[in-house]
Design a protein around this nucleic acid. Structure first.
Lengths: 155, 155
DNA sequence: TATTGTTATACTCTATAACTATA
DNA sequence: TATAGTTATAGAGTATAACAATA
């Protein structure tokens, strides 16, 4: 075993750690796998959970507004809504005065699943942020949004 | 135009915004597209940049340690290293006393590209964090690592 | 038996062009 | 002309099983 030098060397990614994008990617990789595992019993992933929550919170939202809200390209949203619709969690209804558009609304099944899934994700969120002081949490969340706003799409 | 109600309504994703994973995903989507665009002239993406930086910073690192460091599955790393090797940016060298392993080292070309790419990404990082107070930045980065450590893989 | 690098594979995510039907 | 939803497609990212060579 020539490799264990006892002396603790500088981490190979020490330089990368100065980049917020690198830290964010690592953190997200870990907790997304985690939340997806937590949502699996509900038959949901992080994306489909997000869609369900928005539709339950803003029933009748247009599909295109849903895409804009979640930063999902419209073509990619189609199959996701298809999936949730086929499982009876939400419905595509026609918009009265615009026959191009669809209003997305939750079914009773969708609403009840949403409530359960939210409880699961809330518990998970508490776990994820356990090492951050409660008082620092709002600032942390706000800083994440500040980073988002600094991107080209937000500027 | 029946839809503009003048009254500013609650954002449809208001509830989702209480989740760090949701905010992180949004922020990362935006800035990753941004940094990838900035790295494109160098022929690099965020992943390949990360690999190059680690290899330049820890020349001779084993391929498997590189994978562990960057949270990349070994099979997925192979093609990435292939790409950088074929472009003459790094080399696979044999490890003296373990003929299974490869030590990855940068070429002169790789070292010089790395220097240039780091300058690009440093400038980009300054832009990304422009809305965060300088004094808050270390805490923000540390909180991202705290989230990572809270994940199953780190606990 | 375990580990290193590899191949093959599959599923998800992201992004763009182009079509249709409406406006 | 422009927009909403859709189809098709391609490129990335992520994950697992299984193999050969070596420890």
């Amino acid at each position: 075993m020539h490799r264990d030098e006892t002396v603790k060397l500088r981490a190979p990614d020490a330089r990368l750690k100065s980049y917020s994008g690198y830290r964010m990617k690592r953190a997200l990789t870990v907790i997304q796998a985690d939340v997806n595992a937590a949502l699996k019993p509900h038959g949901l992933r992080m994306v489909t959970f997000s869609i369900l929550v928005v539709v339950c919170d803003a029933p009748g939202i247009r599909q295109s507004d849903l895409a804009k809200t979640l930063l999902i390209e419209r073509p990619n949203l189609v199959v996701l809504v298809d999936d949730l619709e086929q499982r009876g969690l939400l419905r595509r209804e026609r918009v009265p005065h615009d026959r191009r558009a669809y209003a997305i609304a939750p079914t009773d099944l969708g609403l009840s699943l949403c409530t359960k899934a939210i409880a699961t994700v809330d518990a998970h969120e508490a776990h994820v942020t356990q090492h951050i002081a409660q008082t620092d949490l709002p600032e942390f969340l706000e800083n994440l949004s500040k980073v988002e706003r600094a991107g080209v799409k937000g500027a």
